[in-house]
């Protein structure tokens, strides 16, 4: 039997198996029954029945190094992350967002102003008002630069969970994969990869609104592939929906530069974080309609069907490479550049 580690490691925050285990072992003790989707569902957020509608709540803390990166910054990330978590539950019209910030003593004021300006801009783009906040400052070395937490609330007519797949459903990704994580990684570990790598960080509620309008009840599962990437999301969808998922690798939209960077540092774009993409499960009969609606939106131009749910091997994610099939492992631990 595996003993849990006595201390928390970075792997416990990287969206893979270790993090799921920690949440199940420790945080699920907080769960109590709710009328709707609560903590025990481990979804993107909670949905509590209020009259004939659902109050959707989600919260997310953001730390990223560097805080300014190609394509975005921690401010845009914090607003997009929460707006997207709401959208993945089917709540595309945020009522309000909170903003709590923990700053390290000595943090440059100009950087803070730049981050806040970016939050303002992104909130406007998502039509998500920031309605309250909190500020703390900690001593030098007690926190690393800045930690941003945002919480969002919204009302939804219908909640989309991430557990709704059944055999025969198709899985769509709304655009190219791995862009955000690869852009961040190129700036970390001193990799010095220069060029066109650029984060996709963006609020997706407008895009998801179009998908829901086109697909209605046939949109059965949604999740944003952040930490753990598309592979992580598909593992969750397969486990919760009790289906197998077969990915058509040749259909995966990947930018040349992301593919090249991935080959250089030995990291599969399927495992890499996205901050402006959704993975959407649809009934096959509505796939074309949903795809057309996604592609008509500027953030969904390269949306494509990447996988099929099957009845065999529930919980497994299988990659069809065009040569043969193999099991796709669940992501685990922080992604590190490799030499071999």
């Amino acid at each position: 039997m595996e003993k849990p580690a006595a201390r928390i490691g970075l792997k416990h925050g990287s969206g893979g198996r270790a993090m799921r285990q920690l949440i199940e072992d420790v945080f699920l003790t907080l769960a109590s029954p709710v009328d709707g989707i609560g903590l025990s569902a481990l979804d993107d957020g909670a949905a509590i029945r209020v009259g004939d509608r659902w109050l959707v709540i989600t919260t997310d803390s953001h730390v990223v190094h560097p805080i300014f990166f190609p394509g975005g910054d921690i401010g845009r990330l914090s607003v997009s992350g929460t707006v997207n978590d709401l959208a993945m539950m089917g709540a595309t019209e945020p009522l309000g967002l909170t903003c709590a910030v923990v700053l390290e003593e000595g943090f440059p004021r100009a950087d803070l102003e730049r981050v806040v300006a970016s939050m303002r801009e992104t909130a406007r783009e998502a039509n998500a008002p920031i309605v309250t906040g909190d500020t703390k400052v900690m001593g030098k070395g007690e926190v690393d630069g800045i930690v941003l937490n945002t919480t969002g609330v919204a009302l939804a007519e219908r909640v989309v969970s991430d557990a709704g797949l059944r055999a025969g459903d198709l899985v769509i990704v709304t655009g190219t994969i791995g862009d955000h994580g690869m852009a961040i990684m190129s700036r970390r570990h001193d990799l010095r990869l220069e060029g066109d790598l650029c984060s996709d960080v963006a609020p997706l509620n407008g895009l998801v609104r179009e998908a829901l309008r086109a697909g209605g009840e046939d949109v059965v599962a949604m999740k944003d592939p952040t930490r753990g990437g598309v592979a992580g999301v598909l593992h969750e969808m397969a486990a919760k929906g009790k289906v197998g998922i077969v990915i058509d690798e040749t259909a995966l939209p990947v930018r040349d530069e992301v593919r090249a960077a991935g080959e250089m540092i030995g990291i599969d774009p399927l495992l890499v974080a996205n901050e402006g993409k959704a993975v959407i499960g649809v009934r096959a009969r509505s796939a074309d309609k949903v795809l057309a609606a996604l592609r008509a939106h500027p953030l969904g131009a390269s949306a494509t069907v990447i996988a099929t749910a099957i009845g065999e091997r529930p919980g497994a994610v299988i990659l069809d490479t065009g040569f043969g099939k193999r099991m796709l492992a669940e992501p685990e631990g922080e992604l590190l550049p490799r030499i071999c």
């Binding site: 099957i310 065999e312 043969g324 099939k325 099991m327 492992a329």
Partner: peptide, 22 residues
Amino acid sequence: SSEGQCRIWHTYGGVPDLRKVG
């Protein structure tokens, strides 16, 4: 090794035959 025999056996309970899946 993520591709090692033991890792694959441990993760999937043997070597999965996927030729006919899906």
